[in-house]
Design a protein around this nucleic acid. Sequence first.
RNA 1: GCCGGAGUGGCGGAAUGGCAGACGCACGCGACUCAAAAUCGCGCGGAGUUAACUCUCCUUGGGGGUUCAAGUCCCCCCUCCGGCACCA
Length: 828
Amino acid sequence: MKNKYDFGELESKWQTAWEEEGIYHVNPHETKPKYYALEMFPYPSGRLHVGHTRNYAIGDVIARFRRMNGFCVLHPMGWDAFGLPAENAAIERGIQPSQWTSGNIQHMRSQFMRLGLSYDWRREVASCHPGYYKWTQWLFLQLLKHGLAYRKKAQVNWCPKCQTVLANEQVVEGLCERCDTEVTKKELEQWFFKITDYADRLLENLETLEGWPEKVKIMQKNWIGRSEGVEVVFKLKDTGDDIPVFTTRHDTIFGVTYLVLAPEHPLVEKIISGSPREQEIRKFIAGVSRVSEIDRTSELTEKIGIATGAYAANPMSGQEVPVWIANYVLPHYGTGAVMGVPAHDMRDFEFAKKYGLPVKVVIVPPDQAHCQCETNEAYEEPGVMANSPGFDGMPSDKGKNAVAEFMESHGIGKRTVNYKLRDWLISRQRYWGAPIPIVYCDSCGIVGVPEEDLPVELPLDVEFRPTGQSPLNDIPEFVNTTCPKCGGPARRETDTMDTFMCSSWYFIRFTCPRTDDRPWDPDTANYWLPVDQYTGGVEHAILHLMYSRFFTMFLSDIGLIKTKEPFARLLTQGMVLKDGAKMSKSKGNIVSLEEMLDKYGADTTRLFILFASPPERDLEWSDQGVEGASRFLGRIWRLVYEFQNELASYDSAQRERSGLTSEEKEMRRRIHATLQKVTQDLERYSFNTVVAGIMELVNALYQFRDVARTRREAMGIMGEAVRTVLLMLAPFAPHITDELWHEIGYKRSIHEENWPAVDESALVETQIEIVIQVNGRVRDRMHVAKGRDSEYLRREVLARDRVKELVEDKDIREVFVVPDRLVNIVTS
RNA sequence: GCCGGAGUGGCGGAAUGGCAGACGCACGCGACUCAAAAUCGCGCGGAGUUAACUCUCCUUGGGGGUUCAAGUCCCCCCUCCGGCACCA
């Protein structure tokens, strides 16, 4: 054994050995309970950074801990390999997206290896592989078959210079992220998934996800944005057209003083054409639609509107109110028309003040007898209805029900639920994605590619023209095909799928990564699913995690899997910061993972990351902290080195447990108390305190070295301690622990060992320290036998000289005794 | 604006309502060494007090409260971080 910890040689040695022996390979097991540990698979951007490392280090500790606890652990890794950066690389460097991606995957896989992560690499998947995206396409067809995939016109972000569609994330402050051209909007036929059909279930099921952070559940809840209200119909005065309006405040219906339509509302055209102010209004609408949706929906944007000259009748009061058009009404939410109640809605109030529209108070605060007719702000709280014939005096919450019932019984409105959640637009005018398996035929229309013809393969050798258009359009062999129905000439869909689609089911594919006649084998998938522990960044709290839930619900509805929720427990780890800020190239505060691995090795890097901060909190990078982690591993190395011969020859069978000295007993107590704490802390993912606990034990062992040398029994305890330390540390620092495990005489890998059991008998303490307080302040302490009752403790404490001195001239009012803990004497 | 989360030594961070500051970093001292590094050991919130073992007081963003006892529970306020943001 070397006297010095030399991580470089040792780490690569074990990585090779583990891979050769396949110790992390897993298959369904008949008797062991299953455990599916998963970390979010990365986009192969080029290299892993320390942020990734944190994610994967956390996941690896969880997987290894479960494995040692007798679970059959599925722990796979793969690549979310489609996406835009590959196309940018193609344009910038003239390299094929596929080549660029596979080069990155190779490099990053080797980085994964260097980190010593316990993956079953036989199960690796890449979403850009035809064997994978064949089934992504197949899933698209299932959605199509069940009426959940449909096509409609939608506005998309369009860069006139690049001649292409941009995703929202590619629009930076209204400009194209690549060429800084102002982004415009364009109507295109797009594919959508009807995720809104699942809105209620996505919301309701959140309550069943006990292992999810509250924060993520709230974010999803807000995103779904369910709101209950009524849809009530106003009639246009001249034409008699219906204008349905959605409101959650139907108790304020008598306070309506105007109606507003979104500029995109279908009735707008009919109302304005031929009106005397037609030109003026058209100009206004054009002005509004020029603004991007992001700016338009910002609260900061000034509310502007224009009167149409038309009037509509309030179905409850019969009162006629002017119809306006305004930028603050959104076409996609509710009915695209809003009733204006300035007295009880801040936005309406602001708008009414600006344009001189009347304010009519119909809700009075509960504590006010009379209506306050001069208001300078909207009263939005509940109150008592007023100026509402037939409903006056009703509390507004009751009034809502009464109004809704009245509307329903008179056929002028009905109760409705609205959601902020919109259908999922999955079309991308991109090359590097899974092609949408659709064919357009002049006689048959939209035709799904037959399942047996999948995959629709992406041509790999493509030319990127500076037009920025998807190169698929330029490949006649791809575009031109025959209609699967009629055999006539047809065109292929050239759009590809949103990459979130690829990542919405990969956790199922991992259960059967090489099955090629179906997406997965149901029995195997049902054996493994759901994922028991999912670990990843909180940035995916909404999109990825909600899409995956949607897919899982759909697949369970059509009987392809049993589980209704994909991830039983979710851990969202915090960011890695340097100098208080997120690492970024522009700030120049990047910590290079490669450098860390070269300089300190994987074990130290992992240990530091897990020790520096609790997993869900942000982590401040510290080079000195890394030094500390490195020093600790060196300390363990030297401890084992010092006792190697003795440890190798004293196996556990020779361990003496009776007739121990008090010092020896205390050492054994510490070993098992630490083991107990570490086990508990691992269960609750408190990795930083686990490491701290092991450090404390090692510190104690350094103090115990001289005792250990005194006799055989003591050395036996040293051996027990070292073995326990190595086992506890194995999930964190897998290389050094395996090396030392072999150095003390074991032949099998430490990663195939079981988690040690706490010896309860070692924990029994005979003497206990009792804290003595006077008026809540610690004034003394004493040692007594464990388990003494309150009466005994009270007597003993009051008999002490120190206590007598302290309470001398005062009356003792009360004495609180917490057995085995503390005594508090309260004096007057 | 709304919804989350956090605020504890010089720093990262510990603490089922029961000894605040575990563990690590930084720093100081000692041992080893010709010397340095590495290592091993000791100390380390602040103020005061004692010749000394000591003893006392203050201290978990600020202010109130509940309790024998509060970093922890309740109310109000401040700061920082994250998410949402005209959703009718």
